[in-house]
Write a protein that binds this DNA or RNA. Structure first.
Lengths: 189, 189
DNA sequence: AATAGATTTTGACATAAGTCAAAAATAACA
DNA sequence: TGTTATTTTTGACTTATGTCAAAATCTATT
């Protein structure tokens, strides 16, 4: 029998060694889905209950401000995806999470993870290291960001997500950078 | 005998239960210092080896961009302080960390924490929950931040750190928000 | 290949915020 | 309590980026 979860297991192994028991527990709980382009994983006002591993495809998180669709972040495949604030604090989200192309995701719920953390210390380690990495990324990305010109912001993003132009359109990228699409278009000239 | 570490132990207890053994291990390793105003805890180019608990006082992290001093974040007492990217990845920092008034800090090194995480699962839990909280804070704060006017940015900061005007001057606050001091002054009008 | 739809670029103009400089207000110190 | 230093505010002018609108380019489908 196939094990469609294997990529996720390998992903976890990059952070922490896994006992057979822990692996089996994850395999037993994980939900594996193939989603059409434009599928919504979570929406504004709903608490994000799941942490997703994006096995293939692309996911975008966004929210509405003054009626405008503003991209929060774009995730290429092989990333953990969720609405971090909502998921971690288990409070209603301000974000939408959507697939921008056909995507496969593997997920467990917040509650399941809490139990796994308690039962398997190696999974709590995974949880810690995963968030540490996300935190370091965010901390580094936003540092001094405000004082950069439109062009410099774009260059910084390219460094963080090199294939961003292949997986997202200009409008989404621009709002992610906090600049207008026209300005971004000119910055790339 | 006094236990000057007790505030830190209580802080940890907010996140995770602590066995006597774990508590003793921390007491044995923790370094307790009183620092004059303007003390530098870490500087640009040096890897931040310690995670600090700010028992009293105020700490500011900042970096230089085009020769300008730009505030990254300001920490009131009872917070964990470090240069997150540098500490978590153990690579050279871009930040300076300084006290802006006389302050007491309690700290352990990165290496010490790694050992504690392995020995005491309850401390690994603390480590995970601490970073999760920081991550949620950052994620929430920066969201949609770019599209706010100077005035709205200031209001958002006041919500995040209500006593900010008591513990930092306008120039530091302005650069933290990514706006000029003059604009901030006018925004507060 | 032709049509329709979506995305990106270009143009003209408006505006929030930056910069430099000086004045005013506040705090620190003798 | 007067003097100096530091911090904050105000003024005049400049500029990067936003906005609205239209043209150009790319993509998909029949």
């Amino acid at each position: 029998m196939e094990k469609p979860i294997i990529e996720f297991i390998n992903y976890i192994r990059q952070y922490s060694t896994l006992s057979n028991e822990a692996e089996n527990a994850i395999v037993a709980l994980a939900r594996n889905e193939t989603l059409a382009k434009g599928s919504i994983l979570n929406k504004e006002g709903k608490t994000c209950k799941r942490l997703y591993f994006l096995k293939s495809g692309t996911v975008r998180t966004y929210f509405y401000q003054d009626g405008k669709d503003i991209t929060h972040w774009i995730y290429p495949k092989n990333n953990m995806v969720t609405s971090w604030y909502s998921y971690l604090s288990q409070t209603p989200s301000k974000d939408y999470i959507e697939t921008t192309e056909i995507s496969e995701v593997i997920s467990l719920t917040y509650t399941q993870w809490q139990e796994l953390y308690t039962t398997f210390p190696e999974l709590e380690r995974f949880g810690r290291l995963l968030i540490e990495e996300q935190m370091a990324l965010l901390d580094d990305f936003y540092k001094g960001y405000y004082f950069l010109s439109a062009k410099e912001k774009y260059q910084l993003l390219i460094k963080a997500i090199p294939n961003i132009t292949q997986i997202a359109n200009l409008g989404h990228i621009a709002s992610m950078l906090g600049i207008s699409q026209e300005t971004l278009s000119r910055a790339r000239k």
